[in-house]
């Protein structure tokens, strides 16, 4: 089911994501997804996340769909040229996978194959445009498709707490122009920045899902502050995580912080996207605490 159907009905849309393993055994991923993520609208499957080679997003999407879940096929432009991307979009269409999320992708130098050729034949904007072409019944080169063309809910990302908001808003506008139907954001730890961003982003009239990472510990937050673009965990939250080590270790503090951020931002957005990063089991309690 296209997640845009829910946005259109004015529902607050909850999604989460899973990362494929580096190998061919996905029983664990499927079990966790079924146990903790079956009550939410859809589940993103990451695409060689952080430029680390893993099992394919499309294959895991198909496996999730077979288990009755609703997958979102994440596609980056780092590893495939336009022909391979178009071909995979058709494959997704054939499997009935109708939610996609288009990203440019991290550079190969950041991952576990730093010597690999970074492709970037297309980028997030031209990939969205390419999807629109396929939906119209022709490929990017203008050649006609045979039969009924596929239709997708076309997702894109934006970084609301980035230190270059103007460049991010300009890019968001280009994504809307290229056909983006909805947005998921980079992880937010500063609700006031997100709210200020949404004041400007609402002009585009597209649903935006607040990005949430459950903070696991101080080390993880410090790492993100130093290395992850557009993410800043404020000092008060670090103090909160430091205060009671056992509570933090059990995930209670992180879930409390994440639930608070969701409550503060909920009036300003149309959904939430949870990047649990191994803490899928905390998602149900997070949603409960956030009143979702």
């Amino acid at each position: 089911m296209k997640i845009t159907e829910k946005f259109d009905r004015g529902e607050f849309v909850v999604t989460a994501e899973v990362g494929p393993p580096k190998g061919i055994h996905i029983e664990h991923v499927l079990e966790e997804a079924k146990e903790y993520l079956s009550n939410i609208t859809a589940v993103n499957v990451t695409d060689n996340q952080s430029s680390v080679m893993r099992l394919g997003s499309l294959a895991v999407c198909k496996a999730l769909k077979d288990e009755g879940l609703n997958p979102i096929f994440q596609m980056t432009c780092r590893d495939r040229n336009r022909m391979a991307l178009e071909s995979d979009l058709l494959s997704a269409g054939m499997f009935g996978i109708d939610n996609i999320l288009c990203l440019t992708g991290d550079h190969t130098k950041l991952g576990d194959h730093p010597g690999a050729k970074p492709v970037f034949d297309l980028d997030s904007v031209s990939l969205l445009h390419t999807v629109k072409c396929l939906e119209e019944g022709h490929d990017l080169a203008g050649n006609e498709l045979v039969g009924e063309p596929p239709k997708f809910a076309k997702g894109a990302v934006v970084s609301p707490c980035s230190d270059s908001i103007d460049a991010q808003l300009a890019k968001m506008e280009r994504k809307v122009m290229a056909g983006a139907d909805y947005f998921q954001t980079q992880a937010v730890f500063e609700p006031e920045k997100f709210i200020a961003f949404m004041e400007k982003a609402k002009q585009f009239g597209k649903p935006v899902q607040l990005g949430i990472i459950i903070p696991k510990n101080v080390g993880m937050c410090k790492y993100m502050n130093a290395n992850v673009a557009g993410v800043h965990v404020p000092d008060e939250m670090l103090d909160e995580l430091r205060a009671d080590k056992e509570k933090t270790k059990a995930g209670i503090t992180g879930v409390e912080i994440a639930a608070r951020i969701i409550k503060a931002c909920k009036p300003y957005c149309q959904g939430v996207h949870i990047m649990a990063m191994g803490w899928e089991s905390k998602v149900p309690s997070l949603l409960e605490q956030a009143g979702l």
Partner: peptide, 8 residues
């Protein structure tokens, strides 16, 4: 087509 999300 514009900035990626990777600038820090």
């Amino acid at each position: 087509n514009g900035q990626c999300g990777g600038a820090k």
